[in-house]
Amino acid sequence: MTHRGRLAAPRHYPVSRKETSYVHDMEGSRSPEQAVPVSIVLRDMLEYADTESEAKEIVQNNSVLRNGQPLSSIKQGVAVLDVITLSGEDTGFRALRRGDRFELVKTEDTRRVAKITGKRDTGEGYSYALHTGENHFSKDDFDTGTTLVFGQESLEQSVELNEGSGVVAVDGGHAGNTGELRQIHSNGRMPDEAEVSTEDEDFTTHLENLVATGGVDL
């Protein structure tokens, strides 16, 4: 199945359920639970296209960049914390979850933020699985849960997910909230819990729902 009706689209897809047109299933590395197809980004979110055909033309002209790399298909996904820019523009749009909805936030800070969710020793270095579904190879040894911050050309810094870190929730009921990680509660075989303080409230969530921001403007 390559497409589905809007009523059957995942809840986080920001599309009108009353329309009769279809939305594409995604292809590529991004997880369907944490991303939306670029066709929806261009048509329904940024409104740069009225139809999928117009969105396809924009992508085929290599005009849409995800984290600085041109996309080749409207079926490719944009994941939480990915940055979308159009060629020739200085500002971009960072993808965030707000509760169970997917949003784009305009930003001039187009550095890429990715959390390490898995790690494998290759003998020549380490292959890291990132929360976006991508892999990153490095000879540097990072802990799982660490955030990697990439500039346009290379890795700029690594930020561990520790008490005192600036964080953003990327999943769960507080998704989209930013604040300071105040305390981590280890729960043995159960998921670790984290207390986060924001300007408006304090909340508790699973530690795995948080990404250290490393000073990147979200």
Score class of each variant (00 low, 15 high):
residue 38 V to T: 12
residue 215 G to Y: 10
residue 33 E to Y: 10
residue 37 P to G: 09
residue 16 S to I: 01
residue 169 A to W: 00
residue 167 V to K: 00
residue 118 G to A: 14
residue 139 K to R: 15
residue 207 L to H: 04
residue 71 L to D: 11
residue 109 D to L: 04
residue 110 T to W: 08
residue 30 R to I: 07
residue 74 I to R: 00
residue 197 S to V: 12
residue 29 S to Q: 09
residue 63 S to F: 05
residue 32 P to T: 04
residue 127 S to I: 05
residue 137 F to D: 14
residue 75 K to F: 09
residue 196 V to Q: 04
residue 46 L to T: 10
residue 121 D to G: 02
residue 57 E to Y: 07
residue 137 F to T: 12
residue 131 H to L: 10
residue 129 A to C: 03
residue 140 D to L: 11
residue 26 M to D: 08
residue 166 G to L: 03
residue 81 L to T: 10
residue 197 S to N: 11
residue 42 L to H: 03
residue 217 D to L: 09
residue 84 I to N: 04
residue 6 R to Q: 11
residue 36 V to K: 00
residue 88 G to T: 07
residue 29 S to M: 08
residue 171 D to T: 00
residue 126 Y to P: 03
residue 203 F to N: 04
residue 149 V to A: 08
residue 76 Q to P: 05
residue 107 T to E: 13
residue 127 S to C: 07
residue 29 S to A: 14
residue 182 R to H: 06
residue 143 D to Q: 12
residue 53 S to F: 07
residue 110 T to D: 06
residue 32 P to N: 04
residue 174 H to C: 06
residue 4 R to V: 15
residue 182 R to F: 00
residue 180 E to T: 15
residue 139 K to C: 05
residue 14 P to N: 08
residue 45 M to Y: 02
residue 106 K to H: 07
residue 23 V to T: 14
residue 6 R to S: 10
residue 186 S to E: 15
residue 14 P to I: 04
residue 35 A to T: 10
residue 206 H to A: 14
residue 120 R to T: 15
residue 62 N to E: 14
residue 55 A to T: 10
residue 26 M to R: 08
residue 142 F to M: 06
residue 24 H to Q: 09
residue 78 V to H: 00
residue 162 N to C: 06
residue 141 D to M: 04
residue 111 R to W: 03
residue 82 D to G: 01
residue 103 E to F: 07
residue 205 T to L: 00
residue 5 G to F: 12
residue 159 V to R: 01
residue 15 V to Q: 05
residue 73 S to Y: 02
residue 66 R to S: 04
residue 70 P to A: 10
residue 58 I to R: 02
residue 11 R to F: 10
